Structure formats: C-alpha cells, structure tokens
Computed example of a mutant assay.
Amino acid sequence: MSKAALTLEEVSKHNTKDDCWLIIAGKVYNVTKFLEDHPGGDDVLLSSTAKDATDDFEDVGHSSTARAMLDEYYVGDIDTATIPARTKYAPPKQPHYNQDKTPEFIIKILQFLVPLAILGLAVAIRMYTKSESA
C-alpha cells in the first residue's frame, strides 16, 4: 500500500532541530536523527527545509553512500503540484561594461583607422623600396 503524497505545507512544518524533513528529488525524508552526524552541520540541512532541496543536495555532489543513506529516512513522496515552479535566473539588463572607460565611438573609429593606417604604411614602404631599387 503506497503512502499518500505529502504537500509542501505539511512538510514545511517540520523545520526545527527536533523535527527536520527535506524534499529531495520528489521524495520526503525525515533527517532529524542525522542532523548531528551531517558533515556540513545541522544548519545546512535546516536551511533547506520548507522548499525543494534537490538543487542544494545535488550541488554538493554527495557520494553514492550518502545517496543510499536517504532510504532509511524516507517518509513519502511530495505532491509536486504544491511546490512553486522554479523560475530560471535572468540577470538584470545592464549596458555593456567598458572596462577601460574609453568612449565607444573612439573604439569604433580606431577599429576603422588602425587597419587603414597599417595598410597605408605597407603601401608607402612598398613604394619606397621600389623607388630605391630603380
């Protein structure tokens, strides 16, 4: 017999050192007994309560042993419809950063004039070497 899916509201109530539940990959885990043994400390786990902690768990790069340990703390599945949809981070729109503070129009002029000057110098040298050999 399968357990009914838990809501985020139900899981969110378990957010203390005496009662700590986490949501990882659609499953709910009661990690209260593991708080003292967690290598990162209990604050790391407590900060991941009342939300989907999957990204927090995956970002650390837990070992296969740590993943296997989750089984003993399994409480049930989360009703994913109760978890707010994650929005993709979009950085704020900002103007192009010009590190050397050179006005953009000067850069555009130089991008045109420098190659032109190099070409002119090459032609002048070529003409000078031709006139000396004649």
Rank of each mutant, 00 (worst) to 15 (best):
K3P: 00
K3L: 03
A4K: 09
A4N: 11
A5I: 00
A5K: 02
A5D: 04
L6I: 08
L6K: 06
E9W: 00
E9V: 03
E9K: 07
E10C: 03
E10I: 01
V11F: 05
V11A: 07
S12A: 14
K13T: 06
H14E: 04
H14Y: 07
N15D: 14
K17L: 06
K17P: 08
C20D: 08
I23M: 05
A25Y: 01
A25F: 04
G26I: 09
V28W: 03
V28S: 08
N30L: 02
N30V: 01
V31G: 02
V31F: 06
T32D: 00
K33H: 08
K33D: 06
F34W: 12
F34S: 09
L35E: 01
L35N: 02
E36M: 02
E36A: 14
P39H: 11
G40Y: 05
G41F: 03
D42Y: 03
D42N: 03
L45E: 00
L46I: 03
S47P: 00
S48Y: 00
S48P: 01
T49A: 07
K51E: 12
D52M: 12
A53T: 04
A53E: 07
D55C: 11
D55L: 14
D55Y: 12
D56F: 08
E58V: 13
E58T: 12
D59G: 11
V60Y: 07
V60M: 06
V60F: 08
H62Q: 05
H62M: 10
H62F: 05
H62I: 09
S64L: 04
S64N: 08
T65M: 09
T65H: 04
T65I: 11
A68Q: 12
A68V: 05
M69L: 14
L70G: 12
L70M: 11
L70D: 11
L70E: 11
D71T: 15
E72D: 08
E72F: 08
Y73T: 13
Y73Q: 12
Y73W: 10
V75N: 12
V75S: 10
G76N: 10
D77G: 10
I78C: 09
I78K: 05
T80P: 00
T82D: 00
T82C: 00
I83P: 01
P84I: 07
P84S: 14
R86S: 13
T87D: 03
T87K: 07
K88N: 05
Y89T: 06
A90N: 09
A90M: 11
P91E: 07
P91K: 07
P91N: 03
P92I: 09
K93Y: 04
Q94C: 00
H96A: 13
H96P: 04
Y97E: 00
N98R: 09
Q99I: 11
Q99A: 10
Q99Y: 10
D100K: 03
D100T: 09
T102E: 15
P103Y: 04
P103L: 08
P103G: 03
P103A: 05
E104Y: 08
I106E: 13
I107A: 02
I109E: 12
I109M: 15
L110T: 07
Q111D: 13
F112M: 14
V114Y: 12
V114T: 14
I118G: 10
G120R: 09
G120T: 12
G120V: 13
L121I: 13
A122V: 13
V123F: 07
V123T: 06
A124L: 15
A124F: 15
I125H: 11
I125K: 15
M127Y: 10
M127W: 15
T129L: 11
K130Y: 11
E132S: 13
E132L: 14
S133V: 15
S133W: 14
